[in-house]
Simulated scan of single mutants.
Amino acid sequence: MIRLDKRILTHFDFVQPILILPIVILSYILIFEANAVLANKQLVYFGVGFIGFCAFFLLPIRKIEWIIPAIYWLNIILLISVEIFGISKLGAKRWLDIPFVHFTLQPSELMKPAFLLMLAYLIKQRPPDEEGYNLRDFLRLSFYILLPFLLIAKEPDLGTAMVLLLMGYAVLFVIGVNKKIWISIFVGLAILAPVLYENLHDYQKKRIADFISEKPSYHVQQSIIAIGSGGLSGKPKDEATQTHFKFLPIATSDFIFAYTIERFGFYGGCVLLGLYGLLIFHLLSLNYKLKSDYFTRVMTTGVAVLIFIYVGVNISMTIGFAPVVGVPLPFYSYGGSSFVNFMVLFGILQNLLTFRFDKMYRLVSIRFD
């Protein structure tokens, strides 16, 4: 039996569950209204995610951080294995088949927590000086960012690859890199933009073409109709015709924000965005509280940036401001991999915050009765 000392609660960050739980509850209500079968499956994902949160919350991460490089390289091996042994779905080779159990594994999803932990480990081992990281240290850290980016982009899964890339360099921006390096990068990207575009896959170019065309794609058109029909205060469940008559595609996952507006209107959308905004702001504000704890700062910044990217891209695509990609809303869209991943990340984050003093680990005991 696991027994927690009550003193641990003094360091537990209660703001996170206070902001996350309303998002989860509202998500379940909408998924249940749209499809009761999917809602029952989502309950299973909730349970698995909670178990994942508890497992990583109780794990003595600071005492076993030496194992983090091995976890990172194991995930790199899995990404390489996708190229050799992976199975293809819809033209993309992103999954590994697990023998005998009829399940598939997507290593790019596993890479997200491993990637953040590796950055935290490296930055803790060699923190920046007052002027930020110099070119040599920047290139060293860039190697660990670009390696999974290239492997995932090759699958091809440019969406997940770009999420890791942006998250990695956003963390470095917050932690500190010499400003001359950033200026050089922005100038280089501006010059190389046409070359990068020409090397995209045809379906990726089509998404960009659909985005910049005068007429949005069918999916986005239906999403905009659903958002417009919601008005200020939304519609009753039986009158949310865009969703219940199947005009709005993938209403429980990719376009769940459009369904939210159709049901709860502009006010409901503002509440949802407000919860995400407060969560992101709270996580970033922890940087000021934990100035010398680089390990925890990397994790809080990384999770905040990850949520910002997912929310920004998902909502932008539902209103036609970004190409349609499979980026879910954290804790909100239907699906298991995203929800469990974020629960694991928050389990790690709460562990680092709650047990940020080594002596706190002694307040957790495991007894077998």
Results as ranks from 00 to 15, higher is better:
residue 192 L to K: 09
residue 288 Y to P: 02
residue 278 L to I: 03
residue 312 G to H: 03
residue 191 I to C: 09
residue 316 S to D: 04
residue 13 D to E: 15
residue 146 L to G: 07
residue 208 I to A: 08
residue 348 I to Q: 05
residue 158 L to H: 05
residue 363 L to H: 11
residue 363 L to A: 08
residue 46 F to M: 07
residue 254 D to G: 11
residue 280 I to D: 09
residue 127 P to E: 04
residue 137 D to E: 06
residue 89 K to D: 07
residue 233 S to V: 10
residue 316 S to W: 10
residue 202 D to R: 15
residue 283 L to F: 07
residue 322 A to T: 03
residue 202 D to E: 15
residue 93 K to F: 04
residue 61 I to V: 08
residue 289 K to T: 09
residue 242 Q to Y: 12
residue 219 H to Y: 05
residue 150 L to G: 05
residue 298 V to W: 05
residue 272 L to F: 09
residue 310 Y to M: 04
residue 367 R to V: 06
residue 364 V to S: 08
residue 10 T to W: 10
residue 139 L to K: 01
residue 363 L to R: 04
residue 208 I to S: 06
residue 295 F to Y: 10
residue 171 V to D: 00
residue 104 T to D: 11
residue 59 L to M: 15
residue 273 L to V: 12
residue 223 S to K: 00
residue 138 F to Q: 02
residue 347 G to W: 15
residue 107 P to Y: 15
residue 75 N to F: 14
residue 31 I to W: 12
residue 110 L to K: 01
residue 210 D to Y: 09
residue 129 D to P: 00
residue 239 E to A: 06
residue 282 H to A: 00
residue 162 M to Y: 12
residue 69 P to V: 02
residue 320 G to N: 09
residue 149 F to L: 11
residue 215 K to L: 12
residue 62 R to H: 03
residue 352 L to T: 07
residue 38 L to P: 03
residue 35 N to D: 15
residue 88 S to G: 01
residue 192 L to T: 15
residue 217 S to N: 15
residue 275 L to T: 06
residue 290 L to C: 07
residue 366 I to N: 01
residue 62 R to V: 02
residue 222 Q to E: 15
residue 294 Y to R: 07
residue 53 F to I: 04
residue 64 I to Q: 15
residue 172 L to Q: 00
residue 274 G to E: 12
residue 328 P to T: 02
residue 187 V to T: 13
residue 316 S to F: 06
residue 309 I to P: 04
residue 104 T to I: 02
residue 123 I to C: 04
residue 283 L to T: 01
